[in-house]
Amino acid sequence: MKIILLGYMASGKSTIGRELSKKLYMNFIDLDNYISEKEKMSISEIFENKGEIYFRRIENNYLKEILNSEEDFVLSLGGGTPCYANNMDVILTSQAKSIYIKASIGTLVSRLLKEKSERPLVANFDDEELAEFVAKHLFERSFFYQQANYVLNTDNKDLQEVITELRILLH
């Protein structure tokens, strides 16, 4: 089984993916980490040194590479991955099950405020600007996210509740 978790930054894709992979005895792959290892640079360094166009091209290539592998896995995508380079079509035509990890604007903003320093995209926003940015960005990306095979709302649920719901959804 191949499982793909997609959604906005701070929706919990990596946290959920790591836990789900343990429960299902499957490998966990974080696409951004995979790209960083392959390119021997952080995502920020890739953006700085080679630009977003280069990043989106290799992101598409590595996504296909992972999806074409024979192994079972839980794959956590970057927040923008489904929105570029026909990646959503690649995902939907693969054998993988895609799940949109959905969280409200309020939930996303409160999580992002706690981890702003680790998120270069939002590090310089004040609280109000961050809420506006997330709302606008989420609106633009929702078209892609909503195409996933499943949508799982995570608001007001702890990690174990989310994992239980995912396991039910996948069986």
Rank of each mutant, 00 (worst) to 15 (best):
S69I: 00
R111N: 06
M9L: 01
V122Q: 01
I29G: 07
N124Q: 08
N149T: 15
I16C: 11
E45P: 01
E71P: 03
F133Q: 02
K97N: 13
D72R: 07
G17K: 13
L138Q: 14
E132Y: 14
F144H: 15
L152K: 07
Y145T: 13
N87S: 15
I66L: 02
S36V: 07
R167S: 14
Y54C: 03
K64G: 07
L108C: 04
N60S: 15
E129W: 00
T164G: 12
E37R: 13
R111C: 03
G78M: 05
Y84A: 10
L170F: 08
T107P: 02
T154W: 03
I53V: 12
S98I: 05
L75H: 08
K116C: 03
M26N: 07
R111S: 03
S21Y: 14
S110R: 12
D155F: 02
N68T: 00
I29A: 06
T107K: 10
D72E: 15
F28N: 03
E37G: 10
E19A: 15
R111W: 05
I105W: 05
L6Y: 04
L138M: 14
E45S: 10
I35E: 10
N33T: 11
L121M: 11
E39W: 06
V162S: 09
L130D: 01
E129T: 02
E37V: 12
L152V: 10
I53Q: 08
I16R: 11
E48L: 10
R119M: 05
S36D: 08
D32K: 07
S21F: 13
G106Y: 08
N124M: 03
L108S: 04
K23S: 14
A103P: 06
T15A: 09
F143N: 11
E132C: 09
V90P: 00
E19F: 12
I29Q: 06
M26W: 10
N87L: 13
G79I: 02
Y145K: 13
C83M: 09
D89P: 01
A135C: 11
S104G: 13
T81Q: 01
G80L: 04
F133W: 09
V134G: 00
L6P: 02
L169H: 08
K38G: 06
S21I: 12
K97V: 11
S110I: 06
Y84P: 06
E37K: 12
P120S: 01
K50M: 06
E115L: 00
L75V: 09
S11H: 09
I46G: 02
E71V: 10
E48A: 08
S44G: 07
L92D: 02
Q146P: 07
P120M: 01
F139D: 13
A123V: 13
K97Q: 14
F125N: 05
V162F: 09
N124F: 05
T154N: 05
I91D: 08
K40V: 04
H137A: 10
